[in-house]
């Protein structure tokens, strides 16, 4: 039982970083970012390049992942998404653009970094015992960093001027504009922050699970599951979705054969959406 709790807590913290980024972008831009998993992947590959190829410290790699993926997000928002949202009245165009962006990033990564799985050795070695549970020191460190980053993001969006502007934009774009907020700038910042979070998550998890150029779609799928559970565009909902998915996986893998776990998760998700399609904390649909 202790092992299930440890596994669930670690998975939840890792997933929360991924879910936070995608829900920020959805909340601010109303864009379902299909390229979120690819941004996670690029973050991991940047850390790999910095630490393994250039042999620089891990902290430098993580910072580089946050900055570079954040800048990529801002660039994509400014040059592609903002323009498409301005000139197009059909909402699915931004989705098509996100899908195209995902494929573009995936193929660039495949070309630049190759087809192999890339990973870095654990930042710290050793295994702790927590009752009867095993807790590898590296996972504990990733867990702690993830919690610290989640707290930092929550502080930023709740207590800074830009963070409050992002939340206002997510609630009512027109009212925010009338209040004198530069919505284009805030949108770009929000997209960049969401992308940077995906990059950091990839940079953290490359020391646990590694990344490859094709991992993006799987990550995006999990991110969508989390925001469907918690409610799209709601920060608290993303965290709740991450905890729900993390513990569902940990409990499922402990009690059932692996193949049954995701079958049950998807079945439960479908039933849940039939009852509460907006997610636990989302607004009622339509």
């Amino acid at each position: 039982m202790e092992q299930i709790l440890v596994n669930g807590a670690i998975l939840s913290a890792n997933y929360a970083l991924i879910a936070l980024g995608i829900t920020l972008i959805f909340g601010i831009m109303n864009v379902l970012n299909f390229a979120h998993g690819q941004m996670f992947m690029i973050g991991g590959l940047i850390v790999y390049t910095v630490c393994v190829v250039f042999k620089l410290p891990y902290a430098v790699g993580l910072l580089a992942a946050a900055v570079i993926v954040g800048l990529i997000g801002m660039l994509l928002e400014r040059t592609l998404f903002q323009r498409v949202m301005r000139i197009s009245s059909r909402e699915e165009n931004t989705m098509l653009l996100a899908v195209g962006t995902a494929l573009l990033l995936e193929n660039i990564a495949l070309y630049v970094f190759g087809e192999k799985q890339r990973g870095i050795p654990p930042m710290v070695s050793g295994v702790y015992r927590l009752g009867s549970a095993f807790l590898p020191a590296n996972r504990l460190l990733v867990f702690a960093i993830s919690l610290a980053l989640i707290a930092a993001v929550l502080l930023f969006v709740n207590f800074t001027r830009q963070g409050r502007a992002m939340r206002a934009l997510a609630q009512d774009r027109t009212a925010t504009m009338l209040m004198g907020v530069d919505v284009n700038r805030i949108s770009m910042l929000g997209f960049g922050l969401g992308a940077a979070l995906a990059g950091i998550a990839g940079g953290l998890l490359i020391s646990v699970s590694g990344v490859n150029a094709g991992i993006g779609t799987a990550i995006s799928t999990k991110a969508f599951i989390m925001i469907m559970i918690g409610g799209a565009g709601v920060i608290g909902g993303a965290l709740l979705g991450a905890v729900a998915l993390g513990f569902a996986e940990a409990i499922g893998y402990a009690l059932f054969p692996g193949s049954v776990t995701y079958l049950l998760i998807f079945t439960a998700l479908i039933l849940f959406l039939l009852i509460r399609p907006q997610g636990i904390m989302g607004k009622p649909w339509g």
Binding site: L32, F34, K283, W285
Partner: peptide, 13 residues
Amino acid sequence: MMEATRRRLLKGA
């Protein structure tokens, strides 16, 4: 916060 519809998800798929 933002509006989301089933239609959006189906279109995305």
